[in-house]
Design a protein around this nucleic acid. Structure first.
Lengths: 136, 136
DNA sequence: TGAATATCTGAAAGGATTTTCAGTAATTAA
DNA sequence: TTAATTACTGAAAATCCTTTCAGATATTCA
C-alpha cells in the first residue's frame, strides 16, 4: 500500500469554536472534556483483542482459505492446490485460524479436513465485500 | 457445505481447476463438489482489497483513534495526548485513515481537526466488539 | 516391510508495518 | 519580528508477519 497523497495545505479555514479545545497550555479545558467520555474510549486491552480479530481477516490468503471453506470442507493438500499455495504455508495459516477458533478440523486417515467454525466471520466478510462493491 | 448466505457475487474466480488438485488419489466426491464451486472462489484481487480494508482495522492504535473520533472530532495533538501516542505516530496513522477515506479533516488555524468519514466501519467495529464480548 | 503421501513444526529468510527521529512549513502569540 | 505551537514528512530503526526450507511423524499402499 502506498499512501502518498499530500494533505491539502491551502484549505480555507472556517470560523470555529476553538475555545472548546486548546492544546496549550497543557490541555486544561479539554482535559475535562476528555474525562467526560474517557470511560467510553476503547481500552488498549480491548483494542488489542479487536485488532487481533480484524488482523485475522487482514490477509488475502487467509480470506481465500475462508472463502473456500465456506463452500465445503477440504483437506490441506486440496486447499493448497486450489489456492496455489504451498502446503506448508497453508498449514501455518490454518494453525492461526485454528488457534483463533475460526476453523475446526477432523482427521480422516492421513488427511485432515478443515471446515469453518465461526460463522460470524461470514457476515463480516459479506459486509465488507458489499461495502467495497459500493465504493468502487 | 453451503451456509445459505448470498455470497455468490463475492466469489469471482477462475483459480480452482480440478486438474490442479494433487491429492492422491484424488477424492471422487470432493472433486465433484469442487467443480461445482470452482467458479466461486474469492479472486486474489478482491481478496487483496478486502484484506487491505480489514488490515486498516487490524491495528489497536488505529482502532483507538477511530473510537475517540466516533465521539467527537479532535485535533492531532489532543488525539496524541488522549491516546498517549506521539503526535508523529498519530499523524502517520491519520494519513492512512485519510487516504482510505475513513476520516476527513478540517483545518482551523494551525490545528487540524479530524472526524469520522466512513460510518460503515462503526458497524463493523460494534459487530466485532459484541462478538468478542459474547465469546469471552 | 519399504516407499509414497499428507501434514505439521521451528527456524530463518524475506517482506511489510509502525514508530521514532530530525527537519520543514504554517500559524499564532509575545 | 521572533519564538512557540501544531502538524506533516521521509528515512531509519524496531517490530511484526508470512513464507520457505529442512526435517519429523503418521498413515496408507504395493
Amino acid at each position: 500500500m502506498n499512501y502518498n497523497l499530500p494533505l491539502d495545505r491551502n484549505f480555507v479555514g472556517s470560523e470555529a469554536k476553538i475555545e472548546d479545545l486548546k492544546c496549550h497550555p497543557p490541555h486544561p479545558i479539554e482535559t475535562e472534556h476528555l474525562e467526560k467520555f474517557s470511560g467510553q474510549i476503547l481500552s488498549s486491552e480491548k483494542a488489542q483483542r479487536m485488532a487481533e480479530f480484524f488482523s485475522l481477516l487482514g490477509d488475502s490468503n487467509r480470506l481465500r482459505i475462508l472463502s473456500v471453506l465456506a463452500r465445503q470442507e477440504l483437506c490441506v493438500c486440496d486447499l493448497a492446490a486450489t489456492l496455489d499455495m504451498s502446503e506448508s504455508a497453508v498449514s501455518h495459516q490454518l494453525r492461526t485460524l485454528r488457534v483463533m477458533r475460526l476453523v475446526s478440523y477432523e482427521k480422516k486417515g492421513r488427511k485432515v479436513f478443515y471446515r469453518l467454525q465461526d460463522h460470524h466471520v461470514l457476515k463480516l466478510y459479506q459486509s465488507v465485500a458489499e461495502h467495497l462493491d459500493e465504493t468502487d
